[in-house]
Design a protein around this nucleic acid. Structure first.
Lengths: 304, 304
DNA sequence: CGCCTCATGAAAGTAAGTTTCATCCGTGGC
DNA sequence: GCCACGGATGAAACTTACTTTCATGAGGCG
């Protein structure tokens, strides 16, 4: 599978803002300043003239235009009306919950909970919105017909990879996950046409995962990348790119929102694969559920 | 200053389109042509340039400007963005999402994605809503002051337990997770007063986890249960009970929604603990982030 | 050390939006 | 019938906004 045209979920139907935040790291510094202004207050940006916005971002109009092109717009006017539309669509986020923001220092636990839940739920929703069903379909297709499926992920993304592996395994697909790079490389080297390799990396820059995915691609396997950043290095070695839409706050480097987003995507793929053969999948699920039954104690009951 | 309710009838309350239709009869013929175009398809009008619109209405740009002023706008750009916003707002969400329901047999992937995301997001939100901040506070307190923290979970909940362990570890807390029951039991036996044991089980019936938690309790550790069912067996051996609010659909026995809910709770606890000592936690997070830096390849960049 | 690439803003150029003003047309008074 | 009069209208001048081009300088690479 040489230089096949990459299929990526780059259409941004789910939300322009989301789309922009995803592209943010791939923009030049000056463009990033513009992007941040736009993302932080789309409605205000829509009202501004290009000169105004350029001044506010401490840059030139030219850079603003470049930014427009970078995010897929024709020019500033188009960005403007899209922004206005976007801003109108999203209902004003209630009070204390700082969207995508950090937790304020004096926050009490109730506030913390509200903020986290809001952002987490948001990440899930926005991820689903910007997910391209067509690309998912192709990935599902590939997984459903794969001889073997290898799933790679390091650190936090490793949990997701492992989760995916377990899910696929439960419905009878032959899937593997490797916590260790060397084992993963060895496995990737054994892949071939008709197999599928899935690399998960939030940042899209985890060299281990990229390396293994590249190896898999060389061997002829179909490669899938799951990342938050549509222009990150991992996308270079992937035939299919699926993106999440999580914006992490500094304080939550545990990166739960991105994890949830990833799990959601995994779940969609899983259900998609399972739906291909409902009865067989259901039977497999039931069988595995029964297997752990002996490890369960009596069901829920009322308490005295 | 009293609440002087500002009543401005000329502030097109119900919507710009409605407002324009109301004014329509009072407009001059040429302006009416413009108005009709705008009203019949606001979104399209928003996309057009003033010259374009003027031509379509068989009139001059000047008249379009006059029309803008007639309906209370400053000029054409303002009308344009207002129109875009208006158009965006009236788009009804397609809504094939079955609340808490199963995926219909004939569903296409787009539907599947919408349904899953909706339910996942819902689980997160509802979990946060029913979470008791007071209990969380106590748990956070216990974790923050614990000599040692043991986290137990089997199967799917094991991922969450492991995730929690890793999170706490990253901010310098001494936390352990054991994939194996026997090791877990051994560890629990070594717990004592001032230590914390956390058991995670979606169903609340996983005997392994219950058993270990019970052991920990006997040894004097504070025990915490995280489950979806407030009256399940695991709550009998827990000093503190935290519940998730996920309703799984049959077909998704992979149980992603419950996983997401659990992760959200874990995240709340984590942030709560981290917030107790912001600077130290932040420093620890930065240190751990740096540690994996060498495993990242060059940042995102622009593509040709 | 020199070459190259890329990011950037100044300035020139183009298009969009706005104003001005002459014209047109219907109305009503003389 | 003829002539003000006033509103409606579009051509054109004008202004502002947007876009392109290009020179510069920083940073990376051989």
């Amino acid at each position: 599978m040489a230089k096949s045209p990459k299929i990526s979920a780059s259409h941004e139907p789910g939300g322009l803002i989301v789309h922009i935040s995803g592209l943010l790291p791939s923009l030049s510094p000056a463009e990033q300043r513009v992007a941040r202004l736009v993302v932080s207050d789309p409605a205000a940006a829509a009202r501004r003239t290009i000169t105004d916005l350029a001044t506010a971002a401490e840059t030139s109009e030219a850079t603003v235009i470049r930014f427009c092109r970078s995010v897929g717009m024709d020019g500033y006017p188009q960005l403007r009306i899209r922004l206005a539309a976007e801003a109108a669509r999203r209902i004003e986020p209630p009070d204390a919950r700082v969207v995508g923001g950090d937790i304020p220092p004096g926050a009490d636990l109730a506030q913390i909970i509200a903020t986290i839940a809001f952002n987490d739920a948001r990440a899930v929703e926005e991820t689903a919105e910007q997910l391209d069903p067509a690309v998912c379909e192709q990935v599902v297709e590939a997984i459903a017909n794969a001889g073997r499926i290898d799933i790679y992920g390091a650190g936090a993304s490793g949990f997701v990879a492992s989760d995916f592996q377990q899910k696929l395994h439960r419905i009878g697909r032959i899937a593997f996950y490797f916590p260790d790079v060397h084992t993963a490389l060895t496995s990737a080297a054994l892949l071939g046409r008709g197999d599928v390799a899935i690399g998960i990396s939030h940042t899209g820059t985890t060299s281990d995962v990229i390396e293994v995915l590249e190896q898999a691609r060389t061997r002829g396997a179909a490669t899938v990348a799951l990342t938050n950043f549509p222009r990150s290095p991992i996308t270079d070695v992937a035939d299919f790119v699926l993106t999440t839409a999580a914006r992490e706050t500094t304080y939550r480097s545990g990166a739960t929102a991105s994890r949830l987003a990833q799990l959601t995507v995994v779940d969609c793929l899983f259900v998609g694969v399972a739906a291909r053969n409902r009865s067989r999948a259901r039977k497999a699920l039931e069988a595995t559920a029964e297997a752990v039954q002996s490890h369960r104690v009596g069901a829920n009951r009322r308490r005295g």
